[in-house]
Amino acid sequence: MSHATDLLPETTPTAAMIRTLGLIAMICGVIIVAAYQGTYAAVQENKRIAVERAVFKVIPRAKSIAEYAVSSAGELKKLGAGEAAPTGSIKFYAGYDEAARLAGIAAEGAAKGYADTVRILFAWDPAAASVTGFGVVAMRETPGIGDKILVDAEFLANFPLEAKPSDDRLVLAHEIRTVKHGSKTNPWEVDAIAGATITSRAIGKAINDTAQTLVPRLAPHLDKLKEKS
């Protein structure tokens, strides 16, 4: 009998295994929580600066920003820095110039590009009822082809792009759409870059998808937004 037990491989007691795993989980837990709390302030500050920079880039006259959300019922709500918008509402940034007057509205848009979703931030000028420009938040388009949307002079000449609410204030008066290179005839059309049609289309669609709901919802609130509160 004892001979048989001698042949069995040495096994670790269950308690020892659980004890070790528990101890390691505890050590790791402490390290992770310490790292999270130690970097929290710096990460939040970085996120705020990144948003500010992106907004200042698309609204060059802006010197300060305020974050808002407008719900599907058309209610305007001011958000704290970095606060997420309630479900169903659209978040946007109001950019104010030195004299605290509204310089423009910036909002995010996203559409499927060639490689992945192209996420952009575009600026809308309420006075001119047009989209004045855009900046890329994230994209993985082909370098040298799709990323021409940021530098191609002809493509950038598409802006300002008309985006005014329809008379019933439910949608845009004209849908923003991308047309084949050289066939733009209306101020709400985006002239595609030859050879980068898919990325050009993504820009048009991203702006249109957000603007279709945001611009009409904003219309009744523009007076409130004129001065920085």
Binding site: A35, T39, A42, V43
Partner: peptide, 10 residues
Amino acid sequence: VTVVDYVIQA
């Protein structure tokens, strides 16, 4: 890796 992730974000 989680620590590195937070540090790079910071």
